[in-house]
Amino acid sequence: MIVVDSITKSFSGNVVLDNFSSKFEPGRINLIIGRSGSGKTMTIKCMLGLHQVDCGSIYFDNRNFISLSERDRKKIRKEIGMVFQGSALFDSMTVSENVMFPLTMSSKMTKDKMIERVNFCLNRVDLKNVNDLYPSELSGGMQKRVAIARAIALNPKYLFCDEPNSGLDPATAKVIDNLLKEITYEYKITTVINTHDMNSVVDIGDRIIYIEEGRKKWEGDKKTFLETDDKELHYFKSFSKLFTK
């Protein structure tokens, strides 16, 4: 379980994340939704220590990430998988080298075991015969899937995805959503996903956190989300056909 306790982040006086607290439970998909620029990416990056927070704490199963040394953080980081908004594949490496990279860096597997694991992960995201291609030779959706394969290579306990299906056609988006759902339930991963896609909310969200201008405005499970007529959410929901009768 990840517990975020009132974190605040500002850039030269401009507050982009304001006193954000929440809990993320294992085996569930936690969605962070909000409009573009509302601070979804910032929330995830602060949780991962990519941006230093001004104040607050973040606990990964009772280990306070903020107060740990870099060496101890590394232990937690080995348990984390992250899919970036722009995939962030290493463009000097082939697909299989990308997926193998976390294995070479922080596991003691033999070469054969690694290759086996790489093929397993690529299979899991429905990619075949692309092992020797470079990221620039793949389509956006394929890159996203390679990024997911890389993120799950080390069997993470915590999985973060920043807009995993933005810029994808609805069919591919659905494939990716289903994939994330399956692996979350299968391996009891604590999954945190940023999205502004209402289809994803309906399809895979177990818990939903709505943020606006860096502040948490609403939080609850999917059923409540669909039924509520909370006025904070109303504005956001009003843009989706799914909610306008």
Binding site: K45, L48, G49, L50, E70, R73, K74, K75, I76, R77, K78, I80, M82, F84, Q85, G86, A88, L89, F90, D91, F101, P102, M105, S106
Partner: peptide, 18 residues
């Protein structure tokens, strides 16, 4: 620089690599 702007450096950091 390209690795920085395409978040590849962040990806390394997330994996616990300096």
């Amino acid at each position: 620089g390209t690795m920085r702007v395409t978040e590849q450096i962040d990806a390394l950091e997330v994996m616990g690599i300096n």
